[in-house]
Protein backbone atom coordinates (compact mmCIF):
# COMPACT_ATOMS: atom_id res chain seq x y z
CA UNK A 1 0.00 0.00 0.00
CA UNK A 2 2.82 2.32 0.80
CA UNK A 3 4.61 2.25 -2.48
CA UNK A 4 3.42 5.82 -2.36
CA UNK A 5 5.83 6.80 0.33
CA UNK A 6 9.24 7.75 -0.82
CA UNK A 7 10.96 8.99 2.28
CA UNK A 8 11.52 5.77 4.16
CA UNK A 9 14.39 3.99 2.46
CA UNK A 10 16.58 7.05 2.59
CA UNK A 11 16.85 6.77 6.33
CA UNK A 12 19.45 4.18 6.97
CA UNK A 13 21.63 3.68 9.99
CA UNK A 14 24.66 3.76 7.77
CA UNK A 15 24.07 7.46 7.36
CA UNK A 16 25.47 7.96 10.77
CA UNK A 17 28.04 5.19 10.58
CA UNK A 18 30.15 6.00 7.61
CA UNK A 19 32.15 2.81 7.18
CA UNK A 20 30.90 -0.69 7.23
CA UNK A 21 34.10 -2.06 8.74
CA UNK A 22 33.37 -0.38 12.03
CA UNK A 23 30.18 -2.25 12.41
CA UNK A 24 30.28 -5.43 14.45
CA UNK A 25 30.36 -8.51 12.24
CA UNK A 26 27.00 -9.70 13.55
CA UNK A 27 25.48 -6.62 12.11
CA UNK A 28 27.20 -7.08 8.78
CA UNK A 29 26.06 -10.66 8.38
CA UNK A 30 22.62 -10.29 9.92
CA UNK A 31 20.83 -8.93 6.82
CA UNK A 32 22.04 -11.87 4.77
CA UNK A 33 20.68 -14.28 7.31
CA UNK A 34 17.42 -12.33 7.36
CA UNK A 35 16.83 -12.49 3.62
CA UNK A 36 18.11 -16.05 3.36
CA UNK A 37 14.72 -17.80 3.73
CA UNK A 38 13.30 -15.69 0.92
CA UNK A 39 16.35 -16.19 -1.27
CA UNK A 40 16.35 -19.95 -0.81
CA UNK A 41 12.67 -20.22 -1.68
CA UNK A 42 13.12 -17.81 -4.58
CA UNK A 43 15.94 -19.87 -6.06
CA UNK A 44 14.20 -23.18 -5.44
CA UNK A 45 10.66 -22.33 -6.48
CA UNK A 46 11.13 -19.24 -8.63
CA UNK A 47 14.38 -19.36 -10.56
CA UNK A 48 14.62 -23.11 -10.99
CA UNK A 49 11.11 -23.53 -12.47
CA UNK A 50 11.66 -20.47 -14.64
CA UNK A 51 14.74 -22.07 -16.18
CA UNK A 52 12.86 -25.31 -16.47
CA UNK A 53 10.02 -23.64 -18.38
CA UNK A 54 12.47 -21.77 -20.55
CA UNK A 55 14.09 -25.00 -21.72
CA UNK A 56 10.77 -26.74 -22.02
CA UNK A 57 9.45 -23.93 -24.21
CA UNK A 58 11.73 -25.08 -27.03
CA UNK A 59 10.51 -28.66 -26.94
CA UNK A 60 7.48 -30.69 -27.74
CA UNK A 61 6.72 -32.85 -24.74
CA UNK A 62 3.67 -34.61 -23.38
CA UNK A 63 5.16 -35.20 -19.95
CA UNK A 64 6.14 -38.78 -20.68
CA UNK A 65 8.95 -40.26 -22.70
CA UNK A 66 11.62 -38.20 -24.41
CA UNK A 67 11.12 -34.54 -25.27
CA UNK A 68 11.65 -33.37 -28.80
CA UNK A 69 13.62 -30.20 -29.53
CA UNK A 70 11.55 -27.95 -31.78
CA UNK A 71 13.42 -24.65 -31.62
CA UNK A 72 11.19 -21.60 -31.89
CA UNK A 73 8.20 -23.59 -33.18
CA UNK A 74 6.07 -23.13 -30.08
CA UNK A 75 6.64 -19.40 -30.08
CA UNK A 76 5.93 -18.92 -33.77
CA UNK A 77 2.84 -21.07 -33.43
CA UNK A 78 1.46 -19.06 -30.52
CA UNK A 79 2.27 -15.70 -32.06
CA UNK A 80 0.43 -16.78 -35.19
CA UNK A 81 -2.49 -18.35 -33.37
CA UNK A 82 -5.88 -16.71 -33.07
CA UNK A 83 -6.56 -18.48 -29.80
CA UNK A 84 -3.49 -17.01 -28.13
CA UNK A 85 -4.28 -13.48 -29.18
CA UNK A 86 -7.93 -13.81 -28.34
CA UNK A 87 -7.00 -15.03 -24.84
CA UNK A 88 -5.03 -11.80 -24.43
CA UNK A 89 -7.88 -9.83 -25.94
CA UNK A 90 -10.32 -11.45 -23.51
CA UNK A 91 -8.11 -10.40 -20.63
CA UNK A 92 -7.80 -6.91 -22.08
CA UNK A 93 -11.56 -6.55 -22.40
CA UNK A 94 -11.97 -7.72 -18.82
CA UNK A 95 -9.40 -5.13 -17.80
CA UNK A 96 -11.43 -2.43 -19.53
CA UNK A 97 -14.60 -3.62 -17.87
CA UNK A 98 -13.02 -3.79 -14.45
CA UNK A 99 -10.27 -1.29 -13.77
CA UNK A 100 -11.79 2.05 -14.84
CA UNK A 101 -15.10 1.25 -13.16
CA UNK A 102 -13.38 0.15 -10.02
CA UNK A 103 -11.20 3.23 -9.78
CA UNK A 104 -14.18 5.55 -10.17
CA UNK A 105 -16.40 3.71 -7.70
CA UNK A 106 -13.64 3.23 -5.15
CA UNK A 107 -12.51 6.82 -5.42
CA UNK A 108 -15.99 8.20 -4.83
CA UNK A 109 -16.56 5.84 -1.94
CA UNK A 110 -13.18 6.59 -0.41
CA UNK A 111 -13.73 10.34 -0.61
CA UNK A 112 -17.11 9.96 1.06
CA UNK A 113 -15.72 7.67 3.75
CA UNK A 114 -12.90 10.11 4.43
CA UNK A 115 -15.41 12.56 5.81
CA UNK A 116 -15.25 12.41 9.61
CA UNK A 117 -18.80 13.65 9.93
CA UNK A 118 -20.22 10.77 7.96
CA UNK A 119 -22.53 8.68 10.08
CA UNK A 120 -21.94 4.90 10.20
CA UNK A 121 -18.52 5.38 8.68
CA UNK A 122 -17.04 2.37 10.44
CA UNK A 123 -19.96 0.23 9.36
CA UNK A 124 -19.60 1.14 5.69
CA UNK A 125 -15.88 0.57 5.84
CA UNK A 126 -16.27 -2.86 7.39
CA UNK A 127 -19.00 -3.98 5.02
CA UNK A 128 -16.93 -2.88 2.06
CA UNK A 129 -14.34 -5.47 3.04
CA UNK A 130 -16.80 -8.33 3.46
CA UNK A 131 -16.60 -9.41 -0.20
CA UNK A 132 -12.84 -9.27 0.01
CA UNK A 133 -12.78 -11.86 2.79
CA UNK A 134 -15.15 -14.31 1.11
CA UNK A 135 -13.56 -17.38 -0.49
CA UNK A 136 -13.34 -16.85 -4.22
CA UNK A 137 -14.33 -20.33 -5.33
CA UNK A 138 -17.38 -20.31 -3.09
CA UNK A 139 -18.46 -16.98 -4.52
CA UNK A 140 -17.81 -18.20 -8.04
CA UNK A 141 -20.18 -21.11 -7.40
CA UNK A 142 -22.75 -18.71 -6.02
CA UNK A 143 -22.35 -16.58 -9.16
CA UNK A 144 -23.33 -19.60 -11.27
CA UNK A 145 -26.51 -20.00 -9.29
CA UNK A 146 -27.40 -16.32 -9.02
CA UNK A 147 -26.84 -15.55 -12.70
CA UNK A 148 -28.45 -18.65 -14.16
CA UNK A 149 -30.58 -17.59 -17.09
CA UNK A 150 -33.61 -19.68 -16.21
CA UNK A 151 -33.61 -19.98 -12.44
CA UNK A 152 -31.21 -17.33 -11.19
CA UNK A 153 -32.17 -14.65 -8.71
CA UNK A 154 -30.87 -11.83 -10.89
CA UNK A 155 -33.10 -12.65 -13.83
CA UNK A 156 -36.06 -13.10 -11.49
CA UNK A 157 -35.38 -9.68 -10.11
CA UNK A 158 -35.14 -8.19 -13.59
CA UNK A 159 -38.31 -9.96 -14.60
CA UNK A 160 -40.15 -8.68 -11.56
CA UNK A 161 -39.02 -5.15 -12.43
CA UNK A 162 -40.26 -5.58 -15.97
CA UNK A 163 -36.75 -5.48 -17.41
CA UNK A 164 -35.42 -7.89 -20.04
CA UNK A 165 -33.79 -11.05 -18.68
CA UNK A 166 -30.31 -11.79 -19.94
CA UNK A 167 -28.23 -14.84 -20.79
CA UNK A 168 -25.61 -13.82 -18.26
CA UNK A 169 -23.31 -16.78 -18.49
CA UNK A 170 -24.29 -18.37 -21.77
CA UNK A 171 -23.96 -15.55 -24.27
CA UNK A 172 -20.73 -14.13 -25.60
CA UNK A 173 -22.06 -10.64 -24.98
CA UNK A 174 -22.72 -11.02 -21.28
CA UNK A 175 -20.31 -13.67 -20.03
CA UNK A 176 -17.38 -11.27 -19.71
CA UNK A 177 -19.36 -8.53 -17.95
CA UNK A 178 -20.71 -11.14 -15.54
CA UNK A 179 -17.19 -12.26 -14.66
CA UNK A 180 -16.14 -8.63 -14.40
CA UNK A 181 -18.97 -8.10 -11.92
CA UNK A 182 -17.66 -10.94 -9.79
CA UNK A 183 -14.18 -9.46 -9.80
CA UNK A 184 -15.49 -5.97 -9.06
CA UNK A 185 -17.69 -7.24 -6.28
CA UNK A 186 -14.84 -9.18 -4.76
CA UNK A 187 -12.09 -6.54 -4.80
CA UNK A 188 -13.65 -3.08 -4.83
CA UNK A 189 -13.84 -2.92 -1.05
CA UNK A 190 -10.12 -3.50 -0.82
CA UNK A 191 -9.55 -0.80 -3.42
CA UNK A 192 -11.61 1.59 -1.31
CA UNK A 193 -9.45 0.98 1.74
CA UNK A 194 -6.25 1.44 -0.24
CA UNK A 195 -7.48 4.73 -1.65
CA UNK A 196 -8.65 5.74 1.78
CA UNK A 197 -5.10 5.24 3.04
CA UNK A 198 -3.94 7.64 0.36
CA UNK A 199 -6.62 10.21 1.16
CA UNK A 200 -5.83 10.20 4.84
CA UNK A 201 -2.31 11.34 4.10
CA UNK A 202 -3.57 14.57 2.55
CA UNK A 203 -3.26 17.32 5.16
CA UNK A 204 -6.53 18.97 6.13
CA UNK A 205 -4.99 22.38 5.64
CA UNK A 206 -4.98 21.90 1.88
CA UNK A 207 -8.75 21.65 1.83
CA UNK A 208 -9.21 24.44 4.30
CA UNK A 209 -7.25 26.74 2.01
CA UNK A 210 -9.32 25.68 -0.97
CA UNK A 211 -12.48 26.20 1.00
CA UNK A 212 -11.40 29.72 1.83
CA UNK A 213 -10.78 30.35 -1.85
CA UNK A 214 -14.36 29.32 -2.47
CA UNK A 215 -13.59 26.18 -4.47
CA UNK A 216 -16.60 23.91 -4.89
CA UNK A 217 -16.70 20.31 -3.65
CA UNK A 218 -16.35 18.87 -7.12
CA UNK A 219 -13.64 21.34 -7.92
CA UNK A 220 -11.75 20.26 -4.79
CA UNK A 221 -12.07 16.61 -5.78
CA UNK A 222 -10.75 17.19 -9.28
CA UNK A 223 -7.98 19.65 -8.57
CA UNK A 224 -6.80 18.63 -5.11
CA UNK A 225 -7.78 15.11 -4.22
CA UNK A 226 -7.19 13.37 -7.51
CA UNK A 227 -3.71 14.80 -8.16
CA UNK A 228 -2.64 14.07 -4.61
CA UNK A 229 -3.79 10.46 -4.62
CA UNK A 230 -2.68 9.84 -8.17
CA UNK A 231 0.13 7.62 -7.07
CA UNK A 232 -2.06 5.52 -4.86
CA UNK A 233 -4.45 5.21 -7.77
CA UNK A 234 -1.63 4.17 -10.07
CA UNK A 235 -0.47 1.65 -7.51
CA UNK A 236 -3.99 0.26 -7.39
CA UNK A 237 -4.12 0.14 -11.17
CA UNK A 238 -0.83 -1.78 -11.32
CA UNK A 239 -2.01 -4.29 -8.75
CA UNK A 240 -5.35 -4.82 -10.42
CA UNK A 241 -3.79 -5.07 -13.86
CA UNK A 242 -1.57 -7.89 -12.67
CA UNK A 243 -4.55 -9.50 -10.99
CA UNK A 244 -6.77 -9.27 -14.08
CA UNK A 245 -4.10 -10.81 -16.29
CA UNK A 246 -3.72 -13.63 -13.79
CA UNK A 247 -7.46 -14.18 -13.50
CA UNK A 248 -8.02 -17.90 -13.42
CA UNK A 249 -10.39 -19.24 -10.81
CA UNK A 250 -13.30 -17.02 -11.89
CA UNK A 251 -13.56 -18.23 -15.50
CA UNK A 252 -12.40 -21.74 -14.57
CA UNK A 253 -15.23 -22.21 -12.11
CA UNK A 254 -17.98 -19.99 -13.49
CA UNK A 255 -17.84 -20.38 -17.26
CA UNK A 256 -15.10 -22.90 -17.98
CA UNK A 257 -13.80 -20.39 -20.54
CA UNK A 258 -16.96 -20.42 -22.63
CA UNK A 259 -19.26 -19.68 -24.30
CA UNK A 260 -17.22 -20.11 -27.48
CA UNK A 261 -14.02 -19.38 -25.63
CA UNK A 262 -15.18 -15.83 -24.92
CA UNK A 263 -14.00 -16.00 -21.31
CA UNK A 264 -10.82 -17.93 -21.94
CA UNK A 265 -8.48 -15.51 -20.22
CA UNK A 266 -4.73 -15.50 -20.67
CA UNK A 267 -4.36 -17.61 -17.52
CA UNK A 268 -7.01 -20.12 -18.47
CA UNK A 269 -5.65 -20.53 -21.98
CA UNK A 270 -2.26 -21.27 -20.50
CA UNK A 271 -3.81 -23.90 -18.24
CA UNK A 272 -5.52 -25.58 -21.18
CA UNK A 273 -2.15 -26.63 -22.59
CA UNK A 274 -1.59 -28.61 -19.42
CA UNK A 275 -4.96 -30.30 -19.82
CA UNK A 276 -3.90 -31.40 -23.29
CA UNK A 277 -0.54 -32.61 -22.04
CA UNK A 278 1.10 -30.10 -24.39
CA UNK A 279 3.80 -28.86 -22.04
CA UNK A 280 6.12 -27.32 -24.63
CA UNK A 281 3.50 -24.93 -25.99
CA UNK A 282 2.35 -24.23 -22.46
CA UNK A 283 5.87 -23.23 -21.44
CA UNK A 284 6.28 -20.95 -24.42
CA UNK A 285 2.94 -19.40 -23.53
CA UNK A 286 4.20 -18.90 -19.97
CA UNK A 287 7.22 -17.02 -21.21
CA UNK A 288 5.20 -14.82 -23.50
CA UNK A 289 2.97 -13.95 -20.56
CA UNK A 290 5.95 -13.23 -18.33
CA UNK A 291 7.32 -10.91 -21.01
CA UNK A 292 3.98 -9.17 -21.32
CA UNK A 293 3.58 -8.69 -17.59
CA UNK A 294 7.12 -7.34 -17.29
CA UNK A 295 6.42 -4.94 -20.11
CA UNK A 296 3.24 -3.69 -18.51
CA UNK A 297 4.93 -3.37 -15.14
CA UNK A 298 7.83 -1.39 -16.57
CA UNK A 299 5.35 0.83 -18.35
CA UNK A 300 3.63 1.60 -15.08
CA UNK A 301 6.92 2.13 -13.27
CA UNK A 302 7.73 4.70 -15.94
CA UNK A 303 4.35 6.32 -15.54
CA UNK A 304 4.84 6.53 -11.80
CA UNK A 305 8.22 8.11 -12.33
CA UNK A 306 7.02 10.71 -14.79
CA UNK A 307 4.34 11.85 -12.41
CA UNK A 308 6.85 12.43 -9.65
Amino acid sequence: MTITRSAAPARRPSGRRPTASRRPSGRRLAPYAFVLPFVVLFLAFGVYPLIYTFRLSFTSWSGSGPAQWVGWDNYTYLLGSDAFWSSLADSAVLWLLIVPAQVVIALIAAVLLNNAKLRMRGFYRTVALVPFVTPLVAMAQIWIVVFDADYGAVNRLLGAAGLPQLDWLTSTTWAKPTLALLFLWKTTGFAIVILLSGLQSIPASVYEAAELDGASRTRQLVSITVPLVRRVVLFLVVMQTLAVFQMFAEPYVVTGGGPYGSTTTAGLYLYEHLGRSDLGTGSANSFLLVALVMLISLLFVRLLRERD
Binding site: Y52, G63, A67
Partner: peptide
Protein backbone atom coordinates in the same frame (compact mmCIF):
# COMPACT_ATOMS: atom_id res chain seq x y z
CA UNK B 1 22.02 -18.07 -13.31
CA UNK B 2 20.01 -19.24 -16.29
CA UNK B 3 23.08 -19.48 -18.48
CA UNK B 4 25.03 -21.32 -15.84
CA UNK B 5 22.27 -23.79 -15.20
CA UNK B 6 21.59 -24.39 -18.85
CA UNK B 7 25.13 -25.50 -19.54
CA UNK B 8 26.08 -28.89 -18.19
CA UNK B 9 22.89 -29.57 -16.29
CA UNK B 10 21.03 -31.61 -18.86
CA UNK B 11 19.89 -34.39 -16.60
CA UNK B 12 17.41 -32.29 -14.69
CA UNK B 13 15.70 -31.38 -17.92
CA UNK B 14 12.62 -32.88 -19.44
CA UNK B 15 14.59 -35.20 -21.70
CA UNK B 16 15.20 -37.47 -18.74
CA UNK B 17 12.03 -36.57 -16.96
CA UNK B 18 9.86 -39.37 -18.28
CA UNK B 19 9.73 -42.94 -17.24
CA UNK B 20 12.76 -43.71 -19.31
CA UNK B 21 10.89 -46.16 -21.47
Amino acid sequence: VVLAACGPDVSSGPESGGTGT
